[in-house]
Computed example of a mutant assay.
Amino acid sequence: MNIKDLLKSFPRTGRVVWIGLRPERRGPVAEVEQVLASVEEGLLGDHYAGRRDSPASGKRHVTLIQAEHLPAIGSYLGRDTVNPAELRRNLVVSGLNLLTLKDTRFRIGKAVLEYTGECHPCTKMEATLGPGGYNAVRGHGGITARVVEGGEIRLGDTVEVLVDGVY
């Protein structure tokens, strides 16, 4: 098997285990059970939605992080885990290595997203998580994606990689 084939081989689908929206800039993250993803606006209800001057106007419609990384980040901080709301990501996904989504499109619920890059921590992590918070998240911050086909995303939805346009 060559590397091209290996890059298209995934052991299983992922699953959405948490959804968060940031209704106001710097405001608390609202945990929700479902969200509507829009090609034009990103995630409806998120403060980035629809702003032309914001990251949602292009590469950052949606931020995703792996559930498996939450205990790792916590361990660097001397905790068991971290609350996803502290990291200010939109979706927490379990069971799928998000970095393997590079150069792909993937379906979550009714929406189709496209990988746009890694989601690096911001300086707020130091204030939110305490001393060393920024470095605790480095390498574990997840990914960013744009919405290419709108639709509803719900807790429990699968994350399926579109290989050559289909799964």
Results as ranks from 00 to 15, higher is better:
98 L>I: 08
120 H>D: 10
98 L>M: 08
23 P>W: 04
11 P>R: 12
92 V>G: 10
37 A>D: 05
134 Y>K: 02
120 H>I: 06
83 N>D: 15
18 W>Q: 07
84 P>S: 09
42 G>S: 09
2 N>L: 13
163 V>N: 11
164 D>C: 01
12 R>W: 08
98 L>Y: 10
11 P>A: 08
59 K>M: 05
99 L>P: 00
17 V>I: 11
140 H>I: 00
113 L>P: 09
46 D>K: 11
65 I>P: 00
2 N>G: 15
95 G>I: 09
80 D>A: 15
21 L>C: 03
143 I>E: 08
24 E>P: 00
93 V>R: 04
112 V>H: 14
1 M>V: 15
24 E>F: 05
94 S>Y: 03
46 D>L: 11
106 F>G: 12
142 G>Y: 11
47 H>G: 02
125 M>Y: 05
161 V>P: 06
105 R>L: 14
163 V>I: 15
4 K>M: 13
25 R>W: 02
87 L>K: 07
94 S>T: 07
87 L>S: 10
102 K>N: 04
79 R>E: 10
147 V>Q: 04
123 T>A: 14
134 Y>C: 00
49 A>M: 13
120 H>N: 11
76 Y>I: 01
62 V>L: 04
149 E>M: 10
65 I>Q: 09
60 R>D: 07
53 D>H: 12
114 E>M: 13
72 A>W: 05
62 V>D: 05
51 R>Y: 07
132 G>Q: 02
7 L>Q: 14
8 K>C: 10
164 D>F: 05
3 I>V: 14
98 L>K: 09
122 C>L: 02
32 V>D: 01
106 F>D: 13
145 A>F: 06
67 A>E: 15
159 V>Q: 05
74 G>R: 06
110 K>E: 15
133 G>K: 02
15 R>V: 14
45 G>D: 11
164 D>P: 07
70 L>Q: 04
142 G>A: 12
95 G>V: 09
68 E>P: 06
112 V>W: 14
99 L>R: 14
6 L>K: 15
97 N>V: 08
103 D>C: 03
105 R>F: 12
154 R>N: 03
58 G>V: 00
46 D>M: 11
16 V>Y: 02
89 R>D: 11
155 L>S: 03
73 I>L: 08
145 A>W: 05
148 V>I: 15
139 G>Q: 03
8 K>A: 11
42 G>F: 08
44 L>H: 07
134 Y>M: 01
59 K>F: 12
72 A>I: 15
33 E>C: 04
20 G>Q: 08
58 G>L: 01
85 A>G: 10
140 H>G: 00
72 A>Q: 13
94 S>F: 03
67 A>K: 15
27 G>K: 05
36 L>R: 10
153 I>Y: 04
80 D>C: 02
16 V>T: 01
154 R>M: 00
143 I>Q: 10
50 G>W: 06
111 A>G: 14
69 H>L: 04
74 G>T: 07
152 E>H: 01
122 C>D: 06
164 D>K: 09
132 G>F: 01
123 T>M: 12
21 L>M: 03
128 T>R: 12
101 L>H: 11
21 L>E: 03
121 P>Q: 13
165 G>A: 09
62 V>N: 06
112 V>Q: 14
154 R>F: 00
47 H>M: 10
84 P>A: 08
102 K>A: 14
98 L>E: 09
48 Y>Q: 14
137 V>L: 05
145 A>K: 04
64 L>R: 02
67 A>I: 03
